[in-house]
């Protein structure tokens, strides 16, 4: 049996939490979390180890690295515009009253479309690392799935009354 490369418990915890988010997110945003977990894993395992493993399995590390670099530039843009969208259903037609939201959606679509639906190089690397580390044998906690599932669809309502507002009125 092949020996697994050990990783820090904190690394595996962080990766599992991010992978839980990968499961909950969609529309290219999930790749953002996969990239983050890959970054954490590579920094723990070391780039030389990844390079060596890629060589063993006949994969081109330089090509994968190029793809990762491209995605690193693109994904934060997708994520920032996605986070700013208040209605994430995408089913309804554009609201003519809310011009800012329409613009944000437009920019989100512009960048999200650039992310390919099939990302073989990145997923190959992830599976390679999952197979060669104890991470592949672990499971994601139920709480990690819930974080985004419960928050993203709901509109966050801030308190109507501001702190100290009543005191100012009384004066």
């Amino acid at each position: 049996m092949e020996k697994l490369k050990s990783i820090l418990p904190l690394t595996s915890q962080t990766c599992l939490a991010k992978l839980g988010m990968w499961c909950s997110e969609r529309l290219s945003v999930e790749n953002y979390f996969l990239m983050e977990s890959l970054d954490v894993l590579i920094s723990d395992v070391g780039e030389d180890y990844v390079k060596k493993k890629c060589k063993e399995t006949g994969k081109d590390w330089d090509k994968t690295k190029e793809v990762i670099e491209k995605m690193r530039k693109l994904m934060p843009k997708v994520k920032t515009f996605y986070d700013a969208i208040s209605n994430k259903t995408f089913e309804k037609k554009e609201d003519p009253k809310n011009k800012l939201q329409n613009e944000i959606k437009k920019y989100f679509k512009k960048y999200a479309i650039k992310v390919s639906l099939i990302q073989k190089d990145i997923y190959d690397l992830f599976i390679l690392l999952a197979k060669n580390t104890p991470l592949g044998r672990q499971t994601i906690r139920a709480e990690s799935f819930k974080i985004l599932e419960h928050l993203t669809h709901k509109k966050i309502e801030y308190g109507k009354k501001r702190f100290g507002e009543e005191a100012v009125k009384k004066e």
Partner: peptide, 20 residues
């Protein structure tokens, strides 16, 4: 019937399957 999300989630699993 929110197909956009459904398809997106499906291809998340497909990506993993293809590499596996």
């Amino acid at each position: 019937k929110s197909y956009l999300r459904g398809i997106s989630h499906f291809y998340g699993a497909y990506n993993l399957a293809v590499s596996l």
